[in-house]
Design a protein around this nucleic acid. Structure first.
Lengths: 242, 242
DNA sequence: ACAAAAGTGTTCCTCGTACACCCATGA
DNA sequence: TCATGGGTGTACGAGGAACACTTTTGT
């Protein structure tokens, strides 16, 4: 971080990422906790290099945190109000963590950080099993949190997450995004549970199945014998686009 | 423009506006032609001051061009790829217009302009009759163009307009935006013609009326005697939100 | 044989579409 | 009284929601 020269970045512009994953029937968001004392959780974010496009920048930032590339992502909103408390909060944070910031006193890094930022919000969908969350230098830890049980986020980052969720809901079946969150093969029940987690409401089993099959994007594979005393469900996978 | 100190603006960030208006049964866009020699049409745009939010900035830029304030507007997309030909094109433009740019040689204005920009796209809806388009210092003229008959736009600005139109179509009736484009009172036929202009397709007269009335957002006023030899249509207006 | 859970079919209702008919207006 | 165009009613079909029934699995 400090080794990079911030002159290479577009000034006052950041990319904030809401990384959605799905496991144990719950929709989750990957959120790092910052190293600074005082319990600050902040969305994974980064800056845009002069020689890269904003989508590329988002891909790079995501890869830094998740270890995987070629992730599905989409802009959903720009946050560009003038912050009222941002600078204050940051200065408080710096006061609380003098040891850390002493090391960073190269050039005008502090000045860089305390600027007003315009944040382009992206949301991303990842297969939670393929991700090995990575710490950056400003992270103390990084974990998956249920969307209904988020930690105390800095500034308006909790709002960002909810705006991102709105965008996800609008696009989940119109853009067939489900397969980004599920393993290669899954049962209809798995898919239904995903939908129920995303929309936070129940669906009728039979109608859900009908609706999904009518989309003509699922390929039925073999059966899955679970060992339970009931009919074995079929496995499905998403048809790859032609 | 040159009198403003560009240090007050957020660097490398611009606001591009697609201003929609409606008259003579046609959806139109307000586009200025730049003073520079060589026929350059470019979307109205501007920069974000340090002390203003991005929505405020868009409002200000729109007011500068239209003379009216409190305009409906909405972000629809950020354009942030690294331009391949932007700098080239600008330098060509400068070469073609040495007289104009000589006057602008204060400080690093040229350097400012030839930077890479990230553009936040906004679309706006205005009552075309209330607008008196205004020239800025870099405009030669500013006119309404039919969306189907745009002049040669610089860079990818024509694509911007079509992306904005997509966003408008998605929101026209879900967000009841029609009233921004129509006068206070209008007939059902007026409203239908607006929809047909926006969506570029015909609607059935009776079904359209039913759909609109079912939205419960229209108030029926008196009749409008047109002098024509037929039944007089009702006038409607949008109910103000409670 | 039985319970449990998946698969499938059937009815009902809503909503958009298409067609038909009635009504006011001015010539 | 006629043509013109606005207002309204009705029938049809697609698609979603709610219900019921059948099939498969392991005990």
């Amino acid at each position: 971080m400090k080794s990079q020269n911030q002159e290479n970045f577009v000034n006052q512009l950041s990319i904030d990422c809401v990384i959605f994953g799905y496991s144990q029937n719950r929709l989750k968001v990957l959120v790092p906790k910052m190293v600074f004392k005082g319990d600050f959780w902040s969305l994974p974010s980064g800056f845009v290099k002069q020689e890269e496009g904003i989508d590329q920048a988002a891909q790079r930032i995501l890869e830094e945190r998740t270890g995987i590339g070629d992730i599905f992502l989409e802009q959903y909103r720009v946050f560009g109000d003038v912050p009222r408390t941002n600078r204050e909060a940051l200065e408080k944070l710096i006061a609380m963590n003098p040891d850390i910031f002493e090391q960073l006193q190269d050039g005008n890094f502090l000045e860089w950080l305390t600027q007003r930022f315009i944040a382009i919000g992206y949301y991303a969908l990842v297969d939670i099993n393929k991700v090995t969350p990575k710490l950056t230098e400003i992270d103390q830890s990084i974990d998956w949190y249920e969307i209904t049980d988020l930690p105390q986020m800095v500034m308006d980052h909790e709002q960002h997450i909810h705006k991102a969720l709105e965008a996800l809901r609008l696009n989940l079946d119109s853009k067939l995004l489900g397969f980004n969150l599920l393993p290669e093969e899954f049962t209809m029940k798995d898919l239904q549970l995903l939908y129920e987690a995303v929309y936070d409401r129940p669906f009728r089993r039979n109608n859900f199945q009908k609706k999904m099959l009518d989309l003509d994007v699922l390929e039925r594979m073999g059966k899955k014998l679970t060992g339970a005393a009931n009919k074995a469900p079929y496995l499905y996978r998403f048809l790859t686009k032609k």
